[in-house]
């Protein structure tokens, strides 16, 4: 068989630049260390307040209280609610978004307007309605977390879905792919980095929704712990719990970022 030949293949682009990566890491962690150092110095010089204490006191006094049995149970409740809310966000958000983005132009443009308005609405005043509808407890808190997370995911996913290059879809049609196959094999992979990026925001907002619900009307969970510590002026356990929540959120974000990097393979336009 005759082969079409050409110039020798160019060397694959080297994406790893160790020195650059080391410099970025140095700036990133150096900034964190500097902020912690300033925080420690300021609180030592001015004395701990009712709600903000030094990092060293948070570790020495606050963390043990957060990591004891009862407090950990509250963290477990919130974790469960967040995971349930995020599961709804992660499954239903991209599904609804791609449906609205790809069904047809009118559905996309009309749907985008509606979802944009919903995104702009403040949700907190609606929480009592959730309690009335779903009762006090997991149901209303999970639903409130899900509604916080799902709206931006729908908005970002539908935009990504509508922006898929027509040539990509035409090529699929030319190869005999039906609508469902084009969706699964072309639209979803084309949008995947955007979907994962949207889920990073959706995760943060789902957690925010659950915490807001627990802070407003709840009998357990991290939000209840925080409001109790505010009432009791328990600065060290309050700050320690905030740090635990932040650590959890950062862990979820790091996991999704790793997935996003994998989903962005072959996409030099993606971070």
């Amino acid at each position: 068989m005759t082969a079409i030949t050409g110039a020798a293949p160019a060397a694959a682009r080297r994406t790893a630049r160790p020195r650059e990566a080391a410099a970025v890491r140095l700036v990133r962690w150096g900034t964190v260390a500097a902020l912690v150092a300033v925080w420690e110095a300021v609180t030592r010089l001015t004395g701990s307040g009712d709600y903000l204490t030094s990092p060293s006191r948070i570790v020495a006094d606050g963390l043990p209280k957060v990591l004891e049995g009862d407090s950990l149970t509250l963290v477990g409740y919130t974790t469960y609610r967040f995971l349930a809310a995020f599961a709804v966000t992660a499954v239903a958000g991209p599904a609804i978004g791609l449906l609205l983005g790809r069904l047809n132009k009118h559905v996309y443009l009309g749907g985008r307007d509606v979802v944009s308005v919903l995104y702009a609405l403040p949700m907190a005043p609606l929480y009592p309605l959730f309690v009335l509808w779903l009762g006090l407890g997991d149901g209303s808190e999970i639903a409130f977390g899900a509604i916080h997370g799902i709206i931006p995911v729908i908005l970002m996913t539908m935009t990504a879905g509508a922006a898929v290059e027509p040539a990509v879809l035409d090529s699929g049609r030319a190869m005999g792919a039906g609508r469902l196959r084009r969706l699964l094999f072309l639209v979803v992979p084309a949008c995947l980095p955007d979907i994962i990026g949207a889920l990073k925001i959706g995760a943060a907002l789902s957690l925010l929704g659950v915490l807001l619900a627990e802070l407003m009307i709840s009998v357990d969970g991290v939000g209840t712990f925080i409001s109790t510590q505010i009432t009791n002026h328990g600065a060290a356990p309050l700050d320690a719990m905030v740090l635990v929540v932040c650590a959890g959120a950062l862990a979820v974000n790091a996991l999704l970022s790793a997935i996003e990097r994998r989903a962005s393979r072959g996409r030099p336009d993606r971070p």
């Binding site: 990509v168 005999g176 996409r267």
Partner: peptide
């Protein structure tokens, strides 16, 4: 209206912008 499913016609297309999928090797 391309027929969905295997080999709708005995035709293959190379597009002007090639339409390669960047996420695939």
């Amino acid at each position: 209206t391309p027929v969905d499913g295997p080999r709708p016609r005995d035709v293959a297309f190379v597009f002007q912008d090639l339409a390669l999928y960047p996420w695939r090797s």
